[in-house]
Nucleic acid binder design. Sequence first.
DNA 1: CATTTTGCTGTAAACGTTTACATCTTGCCC
DNA 2: GGGCAAGATGTAAACGTTTACAGCAAAATG
Lengths: 345, 345
Amino acid sequence: MTTVSIKEVAELAGVSIATVSRCMNSPDKVSEKTRIKVQHAILETGYTPNTLAQSFRRGRTNIVMVVLPSIGDPFFTLVMRGIRNAADARGFSIIINETQFNTITADEIAAMVVSRQTDGIILLASMSPFGTEVLSEQSHRTLPIVVGCETVAPELSKFPSVHIDNVAAAKEATGYLISQGHERIALVCGSATSLLTKDREFGFRAAMREAQLKIELGWVVNGDLSVEGAIRATRSLLNHRHRPSAIFCTTDEMAIGCLHAIKSAGLSVPTDISVMGFDDTRYAAVMDPPLSTISQPAVEIGERVMYRLCREIDQGRGAGNSEKKPELVPHRLIIRESIAPPADL
Amino acid sequence: MTTVSIKEVAELAGVSIATVSRCMNSPDKVSEKTRIKVQHAILETGYTPNTLAQSFRRGRTNIVMVVLPSIGDPFFTLVMRGIRNAADARGFSIIINETQFNTITADEIAAMVVSRQTDGIILLASMSPFGTEVLSEQSHRTLPIVVGCETVAPELSKFPSVHIDNVAAAKEATGYLISQGHERIALVCGSATSLLTKDREFGFRAAMREAQLKIELGWVVNGDLSVEGAIRATRSLLNHRHRPSAIFCTTDEMAIGCLHAIKSAGLSVPTDISVMGFDDTRYAAVMDPPLSTISQPAVEIGERVMYRLCREIDQGRGAGNSEKKPELVPHRLIIRESIAPPADL
DNA sequence: CATTTTGCTGTAAACGTTTACATCTTGCCC
DNA sequence: GGGCAAGATGTAAACGTTTACAGCAAAATG
């Protein structure tokens, strides 16, 4: 049963292949009569257009690539859900490219751009700023790119982006800890090269500075975004000669590791140490104790990023005239039981 | 800067396009001299082959589709990692299709098959047996399909598969609970239409039967595979007039919800109720208490499934002569602190 | 040296679409 | 009825590769 092409439909219907093609793509350009004739022929032959040929001819694959650190992180899972929602609605498929916490290089992106397998790229992972620079020159002319979750310095980047105000959110989270009476607050965050990490760290430091609280050396621990990394980071904090009374983890995933490390050291949360997370993933509320955190509209971010990318794609590759201002979405502080005033108060 | 095609390379190198093509695909068929000439021309022009045209011409996209219930489940994340490892090694990209816990229909698969965007399909999600039947006739002739994680009745299915012995594993897990003295054991499992769920339920029932233990009505709770579903299921068990002394959850994801529901009802694990998980995801060990579970070689399953699919693809679409016997991989019972002898012992 | 073999290269067809352009039909207007 | 517009359809080129086949030169063989 060899695959049936447009030609056979044309023959059966007694028309030219052009007419068949028109029936599918612009039915208004073909007469009622022949249209139903062709319709029947299509049904009879069981014809379906060869997507490969279409992609080739149209120069469009209807595939977009999403680059992210880890699909395992429940937060990104949610963003992906949003992306997928929007993609489905627009008939796009998605290829996922996991960086496994490495910052992605311009070369790697360029390689994706060059292999024309995709119509556009969504960047949820950090690129080195240098990378961004190079890319914006080379590639954005040829392939639409939209950044999500990450803050991108607007003057640096020529890419549209969708994200929360990470600096403000981190400041708010830290501020809440301070408002509960904490003065010795540590930060467990991701790789120092990540812009997202930098922003949240910046917000943390700003809040501490404004409250005139000191950040001891070793209280800011850069790890990766994994549970295990957070366990190691927390252990080092517990052994610190100035043990913090609260730990702010810049992702819930890390907060899970943090909780575990504290509890398995025989301490209790929040009695001995308070823990703040970030992202409000589906595990946050079922942790023991339930995790205070910053909620991001993850699904919405995904949807908006994808729709934004669709706009870029539709208006022609790298038209460059689109609005590059970041789309900001709101975050929300969620108070649960993982935070209490410090014991020494 | 319009994209450069093979033609321009040919002109610059002073050869025909056929020669350029041969340089890239079968360099041994072209003389040393012209090869370096062409190499230079390629570098100079910055030529990269148009993947779309290649796919079209070769009838090969080097894309495979993975169908799974949920990328959010940490177990599938691991399987995906394995799949991706193997795919990267073989130059394949991956399109993910999430079913959101619904069983997938034959029609949906057929649609994927028909749109020739992919070279093959990996099924990690349950299909209705009927679907499998239909598919094997229609589609497997045209597009390679490999099943992972799921047990497939070998006489029913014409697809190769890679998975653990789910019946034996569930039996073993239940057996361990029994060996600890438990006699009132409940099961929290996924949708009743899922083969995987059925197998594990079957193993559970077999172990109970062999130990001559009674399964009260309402002790087997079918939900979805989500945390929330497990919370609801567990609550119903806690309110059961014969409250079980142990709960076996057929995935860790559900065990997380189960733990939460028990603890937030004011009971303690394992003192009041023991909990057994399944999958040994990265959260299992950091739960409170750490979760006893069945470990599957998830990454390996992914890799083997993908390699299997590569074999199918390479030997020509649906050659049909390939070995269809399921590849069994070993599982392992992991004992942690979530299980203790029942209080009434 | 004639013949065959070998190795390399070019020619051109093919893959299945889409689409600009040409052609043809029909009906309409003056 | 001649001319023309509008609408429907067909013709053929184009997209960028791969590859069967032909051709040709050089090397090997007798």
